[in-house]
């Protein structure tokens, strides 16, 4: 027990993970109490179908915030919308749906590069820069389509967003899971991962140590754009249509997930596992409340409270309480 307490006390991220898993358990229990449908076997895949799009955005956001700056990407939702509109236009022009999707993801990378350039080369504060691109990209998506969704996707495209393999949604199994694993491994075991954390911790020190901080951060904005692009493809596959407001509101949820998952808003601390559990918590609450016919309002409110509670008092009010209850003197 002492060893466990010792390890817990020493690693704030691990403590955070424990707290989050506990929270998820509480959420599961609460939701199953609230709705009789919740614990049915059908629910789990249903839950997991919501997870991929938001999950990808949350993962991208986690890395952008992690690298510091402070970094944030408020334009992810708009990138989802704009990529969708772009792919829809290509498909309507006769290009095959999978090549069009690849082009869309490339566009996502380009849009992400614009963000990275504005924030890290022109040194525009990330909040403002991505707010502006959120306006610009989202507006472009809406204006070029007059707000009308683009249909005409071939049914086999739906495999990604609607299909299941072994009972699990394909998007989850073949996209989110591999991406999460790859990112986690990259972050914790590769050199580039070390560099990302270093940039977030103290970019001056990182710069003096020879790291190209700008390149790392721009790269992560590009990655965020790519992940948003992939999310857009999944969304289109699910609905078999490109909606110009597909990504609306997602940026806030993405930031919420990253922050709830333990990533510190100024960077340097955070990780993939926390984000994943945060996604599960948020989606569990959303699904559960929906199944119980409790209005979307409560979901919103709950997410708001969660967001604030997870950041209170520099790094987690609960965390502080937990530490103090362990009797940690340091």
């Amino acid at each position: 027990m002492d060893a466990l307490m010792g390890r817990l006390r020493g690693d704030p991220l691990r403590t955070r993970l424990m707290v989050l898993l506990g929270l998820w358990l509480v959420a599961l229990v609460a939701m199953s109490l609230v709705s009789p449908y919740f614990l049915q076997a059908r629910t789990v895949p249903y839950l997991l179908q919501y997870v991929p799009i938001l999950g990808l955005l949350g993962l991208g956001q986690t890395l952008v915030i992690l690298a510091g700056g402070p970094g944030i990407d408020l334009s992810v939702g708009s990138i989802v919308s704009l990529v969708g509109v772009f792919v829809g236009a290509l498909v309507t022009a006769g290009i095959g749906v999978w090549p069009a999707s690849a082009a869309g993801i490339a566009l996502g990378a380009g849009l992400g590069f614009i963000n990275g350039f504005l924030v890290n080369v022109l040194r525009i504060p990330s909040l403002m820069a991505t707010l502006a691109t959120m306006f610009a990209f989202g507006g472009l998506a809406l204006a070029t389509t007059q707000g009308r969704p683009i249909g005409g996707f071939p049914p086999e495209f739906g495999w990604l967003g609607q299909g299941t393999t072994l009972g699990m949604p394909n998007a989850f199994l073949f996209v989110l899971l591999p991406v999460a694993v790859v990112l986690h491994v990259m972050l914790t075991r590769t050199v580039i991962g070390r560099h990302i954390v270093a940039c977030g911790n103290d970019d001056r020190a990182a710069h003096l140590a020879g790291l190209n901080v700008t390149r790392v951060r721009v790269g992560l904005y590009v990655l965020s754009g790519v992940l948003s692009g992939i999310g857009s493809v999944i969304s289109m596959s699910w609905f078999l249509a490109a909606r110009p407001d597909a990504g609306k509101g997602m940026e806030l949820l993405a930031v919420t997930i990253a922050v709830l998952g333990g990533t510190h808003i100024f960077g340097g601390t955070g990780g993939i596992p926390g984000t994943i559990v945060a996604i599960l918590i948020v989606t569990t609450l959303q699904i559960g409340l929906q199944l119980a016919n409790i209005s979307a309002a409560w979901q919103l409110g709950l997410i708001g409270v969660l967001l604030i509670a997870s950041v209170s008092s520099s790094g987690g009010f609960k965390l502080g309480l937990f530490r103090r209850s362990l009797g940690a003197g340091a």
Binding site: L127, T256, V259, G304
Partner: peptide, 19 residues
């Protein structure tokens, strides 16, 4: 509570919308 303003007001926005 020392919550960074962007997070605090984001959360508040959720809560106010919910209300």
């Amino acid at each position: 509570l020392r919550v960074p303003p962007i997070i605090a007001t984001l959360g508040s926005m959720y809560i106010f919308s919910a209300i």
